[in-house]
């Protein structure tokens, strides 16, 4: 599978996790794609931590307004019923448990639900932005990422990079399958039939609990 096909597949599967009325925050990169695949009968309120709820599609030339951007700084539109607010209220919404689902990428996730996605010491120090607050405060945290990085596992027994938060991840969606973090460990819930279970185990450093996983919907 090429990289774009993987990303689309992951985005499509994540989009099935939303319920009508959910407040959802989509991170930069792959998670942003999720918005394109939300089923038509499911109406969610997309939140952007720079200060809006009701994120609409990319603007056309006519609707472009440099004063409306998402948390990635890209131009966006606001849907009817949407609104703007300041950063303090934005993070009251986030930390206060008013965001139902947050979807973000990660460099590493581990079997205890800890994640690391904001710093590679000595190499890359972009900063945590709103990620630490989002994963700490949101009701459900979904990691949307490719299963490995250049063949190296990203789903580990323990993260080795500095953490973004401890024990906050609920679900991991990759091109290989869907995993859930539970109190007894990391469960493989669904697998992509393009891969064997053995392939998935081999690409995962964490111990997987495998109990009749379903086939992942990859249409």
């Amino acid at each position: 599978m090429d990289k774009m096909a993987m990303k689309k597949l992951i985005a499509k599967r994540v989009a099935q996790e939303f319920s009508d009325g959910d407040v959802v925050n989509l991170g930069i990169g792959l998670p942003t794609l999720v918005a394109d695949y939300i089923p038509h009968h499911v109406h969610v309120h997309l939140q952007s931590e720079n200060g809006l709820i009701g994120l609409g599609p990319k603007p056309s030339e006519e609707t472009y307004d440099p004063d409306i951007t998402n948390a990635g700084g890209q131009p966006v539109t606001l849907k009817t019923g949407g609104m703007y607010f300041d950063s303090a209220l934005s993070f009251a919404i986030i930390r206060g448990g008013h965001v139902d689902v947050t979807v973000l990428g990660s460099l590493q996730v581990d079997e205890t639900g800890s994640l690391a996605n904001w710093i590679i010491p000595g190499k890359m120090v972009p900063g945590m932005g709103g990620a630490m607050d989002l994963v700490t405060g949101s009701r459900k945290v979904i990691i949307a990422m490719t299963h490995t990085n250049k063949g190296r596992p990203k789903i580990l027994k323990r993260c080795t990079l500095p953490l973004t938060a401890k024990n906050q991840v609920n679900m991991i969606v990759t091109e290989m399958g869907v995993l859930e973090v539970r109190t007894d460990g990391l469960h493989l819930m669904e697998y992509n039939p393009m891969f064997s279970i053995d392939d998935i185990v081999a690409a995962t450093e964490a111990t997987l609990i495998i109990n009749n996983p379903k086939k992942m919907e990859v249409s």
Binding site: E49, S87, A88, S90, F91, M128, M132, D133, T136
Partner: peptide
């Protein structure tokens, strides 16, 4: 962290000594 930054500034303007947050 962004939310902590916003809230530390808010506290600074609101006469509070600081905030208690689970973030971080």
């Amino acid at each position: 962290p962004q939310g902590t930054l916003a809230e530390r500034i808010r506290a600074g303007g609101a006469g509070l000594g600081g905030v208690l947050t689970p973030t971080g």
